[in-house]
Design a protein around this nucleic acid. Structure first.
Lengths: 195, 195, 195, 195
DNA sequence: AATGAATGAGCCTTCATTCAT
DNA sequence: GATGAATGAAGGCTCATTCAT
């Protein structure tokens, strides 16, 4: 359970992530991971206590990376501007790391998540700026009366779904540009949407 | 591979569905299903070609049931009223069959779905009324310019997410009633939201 | 966990017993058993719930066989005569089934036994005639005041140890015949040993 | 494979012994031992060639310790008195080191012992006083005509079995005191038992 | 059509042993 | 001499699938 070789740990998580994205959580097997990571199967246990610990680390790692990337806005700035900024960040992240987002989504919605023993604190780690933004926007009368989870339903989920639909060819970005999504979400959340 | 005994097939799908809802897709095993359905494991192969075929049938069955229940509106009625009606139907279904919806969602978002060989036509079966409603609403200038998938992002997904959050205790329905969600979604989609 | 094929179950136990006798309990592996029994490894689970259940069955089977063979005396006959008879039966069994006895002994003295969940009732099953003989002999004033376990220490254990020592060439049966053992044990247990 | 640090070797054997006593020979693993002994697993190989060598050392160490403790009688003294003394020593040792005795017994009766390559000379080391006592007692006409192994069957084994039965609650030492065992064994071995 | 015993690949995990540091 | 990461074989067990009955 040591972590002598940080690079190796990274390779393991990368290999596991690839499998989850390609074949789903259910298809993850330690032997596949070991092979993909170029190590012996037993070596996995030097880096993770067991399979669940590895999946948990994988999940939290991706989740934190995304949280960090999508919270690079100013939570004390103008709520409307920061909300738009947040959605841009999410979309930018989706364009570069869509698979990672799908991995997070698959975990979020899988009963496996409970077995991993992810605490609520761990699950929310990194999202504080968004919570803060939500509260400030509502308090300032700029946002409709929403709570964190509701705001995410309109500012995060539609963006990801849009990116997925575009990637799958279900939506033509020429016909429906990302700005349209942003506009719709703003209409929902902002008390006085611009246009 | 005939379907001699329709009741038996139903029992199989019911047993499988229960397991998916309780433990996730990954936990489904044919022996568990057989036992829960009260039949011999080999008999499963009389009704389904293999495990994937059974999962596909399970998925489509639940999806169609939900599609049927949530499209009991008048697709040629007033778009705004029918949109609200649709959201009510979705919420009503979520309150009675949340597990079914989660099953559908777990499938939708898992790479497993591709392995099951679900065609695009099968995936969209039953949703025609919503497609029709979308097109009519947009054409009439009542809806913002959206396509089917985008409308679902605002009229279906937030409702399900809300129901899940309430079920998990993350949202207090006293503080955030369902009407709030409906209002937000209408603000997004309708050109002239009522209030 | 069915037992359709009694012969197969017998073959499994025989194979397992052989391995225990040859290499010890610790060396028992299900794959070895399967190979020796000429079946696939998974098939073992048709006959036994798991490895422990199989070992328990193995232990009890051998123990009961020995108990049955060594209690073919008349528990209500003359205590002295029946005691001698019992020792003869034990020795006869040892000459034909020494390995079985060693298997029983290895189980008895292994911490594994506790994991197998052998109840006290199961452990004593089949020994009732000896318990009865002990009590009658003591009550009649023919035996020294002993309880079951003590009697076994003098009437059973030395016989087995003798048989083992002879088998290992540590004792020459010409020099020390079995009658010598029987005499010593009788001197210990009987109030008035014959010679 | 030198023995630089005698203390470390002792700690290793102590750790291994504890595991054998607690969980049985089969549960011994070198990593467990290393952890319990506070050394790195690789270091074990500095002190022992391999696992078998370690087990053999463990066995012999305990056996010699017991042999030394139970042969603190005067092998040239009065045979009857010394025989009683020997049994007292065995019982005293059992009361303080029952687990050690069970460890020895588990080894003695397991086929594993042969794999360890214990020579006959090693097995008998330390028991010379008892051999000598046996021969003198028989020659003097005080003991019945027994050889070493037979004497042990009556003077050692019943004592250990008694101690185990008491420890397991199978025998109540109030009802059956140790003196009873000593008396029975003396009746078997002595030509003219006292009482 | 229905059964369920049988199969053997594959899963997660542990372990004795090696070797670069 | 000591370390502990790395190895890969082996262990117990589950599972989808087949097939004789």
């Amino acid at each position: 359970m040591r972590e002598r070789d940080d690079d190796k740990q990274r390779r393991i998580l990368a290999a596991a992530g690839q499998i989850v994205m390609d074949e789903g959580i259910a298809a993850v097997s330690l032997s596949k991971i070991a092979q993909a990571a170029g190590i012996a199967s037993g070596t996995l246990y030097t880096y993770f206590k067991d399979k669940n610990a590895m999946l948990k680390a994988l999940y939290l790692h991706h989740k934190e990376a995304m949280a960090k990337a999508t919270t690079q806005f100013d939570p004390s700035g103008d709520p409307e501007r920061e909300l738009r900024h947040y959605m841009d960040l999410v979309y930018a992240y989706a364009q570069q790391h869509l698979a990672d987002m799908l991995l997070i989504r698959e975990f979020n919605q899988s009963p496996v998540l409970q077995q991993l023993g992810v605490t609520r604190a761990e699950a929310y780690a990194g999202y504080e700026p968004i919570v803060q933004l939500t509260e400030r926007g509502v308090a300032a009368g700029v946002f409709m009366p929403v709570v964190f989870d509701v705001l995410m339903s309109y500012a995060y989920t539609p963006v990801v779904e849009y990116a997925v639909a575009v990637a799958n060819g279900l939506i033509d970005p020429q016909t429906v540009p990302f700005d349209r999504i942003k506009m719709l979400s703003c209409r929902a959340i902002l008390v006085h949407p611009k246009a």
